[in-house]
Design a protein around this nucleic acid. Structure first.
Lengths: 188, 188
DNA sequence: ACGCACATGTAAGCCGTTACATGATTAC
DNA sequence: GTAATCATGTAACGGCTTACATGTGCGT
């Protein structure tokens, strides 16, 4: 399981509370690892039992207190060991493609609208990543090494979104050439 | 849940046994929906209870008998209804990117090797998809409509793999420019 | 005799999703 | 006063993975 290591890898860069981790994940890690707040809290509790992280309460005057988690030397060792293991490509499960596969069963414009909707989602995400790129990685050689590695992951996110947009465009073009007959219902 | 609909969508094209479904998934559906044999068997049992598919035993002389599943009109209605619902992008969970993020903790060549290994995996998959493209979709306008839609999904798979390869290449190039210091261990 | 492809399942455990629960502080 | 943000959790359910279990027929 790798949520464990996604959290360890993030904490290795700087200590964070569960809440801040969740926000960080949403902003920067989402392009390759999505996790809910609930998952993160549960996982942190486990990690602490294992001794891979430890926490201390940070008293805040103006806000609710927070529990800040830090990676332990043991946790860091564990993370390094994990880095050495080969990793497998993710299993893919993409609803939209299943819908495209069965698209001949419904009116053509239904699929077209769905493709356009989807294209916009990826465009928004791409815009977001590009903005992060501009703000934090404008001059790559002057940022700390950790951030240079982070930049590689951001690049992956950028490509991923751009690739989706390109496919949507391509699919829409091809769809336009398909015969209209798909919109007709058959008796069955 | 959409394994249900991935199976219905496949059975809508032609009846298949659980075993054949699993093989078909591996060959053609894997680029957007991966499912194990176990999942497929279990799901088929559920689908039959719901009345969305029904099965009959096909006696085979030279091989073990098989249970062939067909979609029912009710199942097809259900599938069409599902097609009308908007779908969300998949959640991503990519180990390799977590490893890249924490890559500064281990010797540089370790990450490089992993990237090269990964690039090969995607190259192999891409080669496979291109071969499917050549064999089945050489002249798109002469294949039945169902296959034209399937072609769109294959195109997604092709892009996906090509995109991974391109990113690996890019990441390797950038990595080569990173300082060597990452290979040094720090006292902590 | 052995391994492989064909063929169908069960069971345990883990992980992720969703809903629920609580409570403080800030801004309007 | 009420909505939003900050902050931390618990509980139930369901799906997915992994391992196990069983058996046929073909090729070598």
């Amino acid at each position: 399981m790798a949520l464990t290591h996604a959290i360890l890898a993030t904490l290795a860069r700087s200590p964070l509370s569960g809440y801040d981790l969740a926000k960080h994940f949403d902003q920067y890690v989402a392009c390759y690892w999505q996790a809910s707040q609930q998952q993160i809290y549960r996982e942190l509790a486990k990690l602490e039992v294992e001794g891979w992280v430890h926490s201390h309460l940070e008293i805040q005057a103006d806000r609710p207190n927070k529990k800040v988690y830090e990676i332990t030397p043991l946790g860091k060792e564990n993370l390094k060991e994990w880095l050495k293991e080969p990793s497998q490509p993710t299993v893919l499960r993409e609803d939209l493609l299943v819908k495209v596969l069965a698209g001949y069963l419904v009116p053509k414009n239904l699929i077209e609208e769905e493709l356009k909707r989807r294209q916009k989602i990826h465009q928004n995400q791409l815009d977001h990543y590009r903005q992060v790129e501009q703000s934090f990685f404008a001059n790559l050689r002057q940022v700390p090494l950790e951030h240079q590695f982070q930049y590689l992951t951001l690049k992956r996110g950028i490509r991923y979104e751009a690739d989706w947009i390109a496919w949507c465009e391509e699919a829409l073009t091809l769809l336009a050439q398909f015969p209209e007959e798909c919109s007709r219902e058959r008796a069955d």
